[in-house]
Amino acid sequence: MTLKRMRYNWIYTLLVYCSLTGLASCDKAELIVAEPVVEKYNPAVPSNLAASVPSPERNPTTKEGVLLGRMLFFDPILSKNGKVSCASCHQPEKAFTDGAALSTAGVSGKPLLRHVPTLANVAWMQGLFWDGGAKDLESLSFGPLTHPDEMGQNLKELAQKLQQHKKYPVLFQKAFGTDSITSAAIGRALAQFQRTIISGNSRYDKYVRNEAGGTLSEPELKGLVLFKENCSTCHTSGFFTDNQYHNNGLDNTYSEANEAMEFGRGRITGLPKDIGKYKTPTLRNIAITAPYMHDGRFDTLDQVLEHYTSGIIQSATLAPELQQHGRLGIPLTAAEKESIIQFLKTLTDEEFLKNPELLPVVE
């Protein structure tokens, strides 16, 4: 029975009751149509990140929506073969990455063409995926859900499968007030859960907030100074990303194969000036999200800093920050690179990695 039909039956029953009993009060009865009871949810946000979690009017965050999204996120029912969940690649203990350069966890077993990015603080990201191909969290999940090498799912068939499930129809009814499951509702539920994936309680954060447990050593403090001098233009403190796209000197040729995947941002905008540019990733929990770069080509942070020091490749769209003072790259000594790495390790958020609210629901 549809929600509209349920409302109609309720009103009809009340009118019949009034006519039969002749109650005067019914002449003035105000017919109030019951809406699904949901509890708005405002996730706690560390003060040095933001005041609150952004939430679009069309998809306000509720406890019922978050719970539903959380269950869907860890459920392999979302994939074509029933074996791959969102968490197959976005594993909580790895800061919602998977530890592989190019994942083979999808339904086809083929390597993906890009490295799995972290979902930490994705609620504040402006433009999603490495090239900004998704503009909001409500649309983010449809790419991996339908990609033949990821979850390989037909959205219509998925909705039908969830409709026949013993638990999901009730959960969708509680979250969205509908007894008809749609792909849009699936996307909204997943988005609500992902907005709660918040990391901001590392040792560095506690240092910034002058809290207990926020002590940084002398090498770490030196690394912080060096980081601010050399890296913070793109990795802006707070979220440690500027939410922009840059060519960081990895290549100077870009294949048009696989729908021009190597064009990066240029694949989305179609502009030559954007070819080879990729979204600045957050550096939060960077010590445990190896390998690095959009294709996972670097295994260690040492290799990453060595690239910025001596491995920059000139190209037409290379970031101007990497071609200053008559040279390519950022001049850093071995000791300075080690200090920066020591600082980056302070961005590991152990509370986030073990947060029970970000783990599978225990039924």
Rank of each mutant, 00 (worst) to 15 (best):
R7G: 12
W10I: 06
L20T: 10
S25L: 12
L31Q: 11
I32P: 00
V37L: 03
E39Y: 08
K40F: 14
P43I: 01
A44D: 13
S47R: 14
S47E: 15
S52V: 11
T62V: 04
T62R: 04
K63Y: 06
V66W: 06
L67P: 04
M71V: 11
M71R: 15
F74L: 11
D75N: 15
L78A: 03
N81Y: 03
N81L: 01
N81A: 04
S88Q: 10
Q91C: 05
A100P: 00
A105E: 11
P111Y: 12
N121L: 02
N121H: 00
W124K: 07
G133Q: 12
G133T: 07
K135G: 06
L137R: 02
L140W: 12
F142D: 07
T146D: 03
T146L: 02
T146N: 01
L155I: 06
L158G: 11
Q160R: 13
K161L: 12
Y168R: 07
Y168W: 04
P169N: 11
L171T: 01
F172H: 04
F176H: 05
F176G: 07
S180G: 00
A185D: 15
G200P: 11
D205E: 13
K206T: 07
A212V: 12
L216I: 04
L216R: 07
E220K: 08
E220P: 11
L221E: 14
L224G: 05
K228H: 14
T233F: 13
H235G: 04
T236S: 13
G238D: 07
H246T: 03
L250F: 14
A260W: 00
E262C: 00
D274Y: 01
D274C: 06
T282C: 06
R284H: 02
I286E: 00
I286K: 00
A287E: 11
T289Q: 04
A290F: 08
H294R: 01
T300A: 01
V304I: 06
I312S: 00
Q314C: 00
S315M: 02
T317I: 08
T317H: 02
G329W: 03
I330P: 10
L332S: 09
A335Q: 14
A335T: 08
K337L: 02
I340W: 05
I340D: 06
Q342M: 05
T346W: 03
T348M: 09
D349M: 02
D349S: 10
L353A: 03
P356C: 07
E357R: 06
L359D: 01
V362E: 14
